[in-house]
Simulated assay, not measured.
Amino acid sequence: MTMLDESRIAAVASVLRNIPASAVEVIELNDPQYAAIKKLVAVHGDRAVALAVANALISYRLSLPGEKYWLEFADWGSRIPTPSAGKELVEAMKAFLAESRGNRMVVQQKARRLERAAPVLERVLREPGRYRDLGVLVKELAGVLGARPEEKTIVFAAKMAYYAYRALGLEVAGKNEIPVPLDRRMALLTSASGMINSTPDKVFTRYRLDAVRAWQKVSRESGIPALHLDAVVWLPAHGIERNLRRGLEYARDEFARRLVGYSKGIVDWNTARQVAGQIIYRDPYS
């Protein structure tokens, strides 16, 4: 039985349709995670793609918000020698885990994950151009890790690889098939939007695939590829749990303010407020 509320999906898509492609471009450029990747590219060139993919695969159960964590990673990554082999990259990433402030939990589990991914990381290092087809990257990562292709860190790896190619001035293929990475913030937004009438925790666990399908439908109906849609709705929702404690209208205003800011004013206040009203349609904790 599907948990999707089709009317809410249509409502969310209808307001996102008003965001111009130029605004989406600017929002991504102002994403702190893109700034982090750009810093790595400046030091490591196209081998930064492999660094971005490796870190994305262990970007879960973080001790810092994702925006701050990636800046920490970029500071570290810009000081190390450029890895020349998958094993060397894995060992470097283990060293990062040992000292990271933002990635402290289940460190051994993450180290083993990197070891399993080493063959793909090796190929990304040696043939970064091959993985400009993001579908190839997703397929190979899912295969080596024994995971579903829509698993959060795998599609997130594709997103961060896309950021690396963008920083290199290179186009990518296959991005329209990449779903939204469903982390806890996106699960909360799925619940708050009313697209799935359940709590954020249940969306994140029991209804994960339903949530991914909901955002895929929003992507198709709004005309914004899910790979880009992630930045448009995820970035302005920073601190949303804290903001919701101050009330629904406060959370909507903060979301709208950030959306205007990240787009450098290309998204006007009225449009941003309409988007916020549909994305934060209800209090997901009430």
Results as ranks from 00 to 15, higher is better:
A35S: 14
I37E: 04
L40T: 10
V41E: 11
R47F: 08
R47I: 04
A48D: 03
V49Q: 09
N55T: 10
N55S: 07
A56R: 08
A56S: 15
A56G: 08
L57E: 06
I58H: 10
Y60G: 06
R61C: 02
L62V: 13
S63K: 06
L64H: 11
A74D: 09
A74N: 09
D75M: 07
W76R: 07
W76N: 02
W76G: 08
G77V: 08
R79M: 11
R79F: 01
P81W: 00
G86W: 03
K87D: 10
E88D: 13
E88K: 07
E88Y: 06
V90W: 01
E91G: 02
E91C: 00
M93P: 01
A95V: 07
E99H: 05
S100P: 05
G102E: 06
M105G: 00
M105W: 13
V107M: 03
E115V: 15
A118H: 03
P119G: 11
L125R: 07
L125V: 05
E127H: 14
P128K: 00
G129V: 10
G129H: 07
D133E: 14
L134F: 03
G135F: 00
G135P: 07
V136Y: 00
V136F: 01
V138T: 05
V138P: 01
K139E: 14
K139V: 00
E140P: 07
E140Q: 05
L141T: 05
A142Q: 05
G146S: 11
G146M: 07
A147E: 15
